[in-house]
Design a protein around this nucleic acid. Structure first.
Length: 283
DNA sequence: CACCATGTTCCTTG
DNA sequence: CCAAGGAACATGGT
């Protein structure tokens, strides 16, 4: 599901719901997702702790909490992987099939559900430490971006997925940003001209910001039995069956007309992942 | 059955 | 040592 915009929307959604909530019990159904933190350590650290803030770094969620007794604060790191979801559920509601972790909050439960168990909810901050700059921040400069690209002969689409180059872009927004910048996904990174780098830098920020804005306007439903399409960019409004298409310009649109020129969008495989692009608009 | 899927990490190859 | 490619992880949808 989740790239930077989706995680940002989720963080904004969760922040007021869990602030000041005390964790009364910690249930770990899938030890793998809290790893490499050992389950007993995970439970000991969180039991009795109180949530303080939620923020985002790249595709990671950062939950700041106050431990039960010791002073200071600590951080719980979340990552949704491919299909993870985090949401509050009434304590009386049944837990979903692929529940990985549950934090009992009293009236509600904080549920981490992940059908594929690729996600994480852990005390280990290793992944976060390796991230590059936030794309929508002063830390992401055209100069740094240009220097990083100059060192690589890898296709630009594949480079954009490297979280140490810039944090938060995934397979969907990599294609979308390149379309917006009118750059071929196959172009080797070091072959981008300064003008293209400038356009791509701008397109990344605009694409992500637009997705966040869009997500902010959509009614969210992260949980709920039978609501398997709750994440907003795969969500569907029953009254507008094609609104998903209106939002993404190239992703998953192979064979459909480019919104600029009408040429059929093409799919290609790079680093074992699908890329979508317009062969006419993107050079 | 075959192939596809929003992500990351580890292993191999050059 | 580094860059690049591919498999693995686990499950579900089409």
């Amino acid at each position: 599901m989740p790239e930077l915009p989706e995680v940002e929307i989720l963080v904004r959604h969760l922040a007021p719901l869990i602030r000041s909530q005390r964790i009364r019990a910690v249930l770990v159904n899938r030890p793998k997702v809290v790893g490499p933190t050992p389950v007993p350590e995970f439970q000991r650290a969180l039991r009795g702790a109180t949530f303080e803030r939620v923020s985002r770094r790249g595709k990671y969620l950062l939950f700041t909490f106050c431990p039960r007794r010791r002073s200071g604060r600590r951080v719980l790191v979340g990552h949704l992987g491919m299909a993870g979801r985090m949401y509050l559920l009434p304590a009386t509601a049944p837990l979903p099939k692929h529940t990985a972790v549950v934090l009992e909050l009293g009236r509600n439960r904080f549920v981490f559900e992940d059908t594929r168990y690729f996600g994480r909810l852990t005390l280990d901050t290793g992944g976060v430490d390796r991230l590059g700059p936030e794309p929508i921040s002063d830390g992401f400069t055209q100069g740094n971006f240009a220097r990083a690209l100059a060192r690589s002969g890898q296709a630009i689409k594949v480079r954009l997925l490297d979280q140490s180059l810039v944090a938060g872009i995934g397979n969907i927004y990599a294609s979308e940003a390149l379309f917006r910048a009118r750059i071929s996904p196959r172009l080797p990174a070091r072959r981008l001209k300064p003008e293209q780098i400038r356009r791509l830098w701008q397109a990344i920020r605009a694409t992500l910001a637009e997705a966040i804005r869009w997500g902010s306007t959509v009614a969210l439903n992260y949980s709920g039995a039978g609501e398997r399409d709750g994440l907003f960019y795969f969500g569907r409004d029953p009254d507008a069956p094609d609104f998903y298409e209106e939002r993404l310009r190239v992703y998953d649109r192979a064979g459909q007309p480019c919104r600029n020129c009408g040429t059929p969008i093409r799919r290609l495989v790079q680093a074992a992942r699908s890329t979508f692009y317009c062969p006419k608009c993107q050079v």
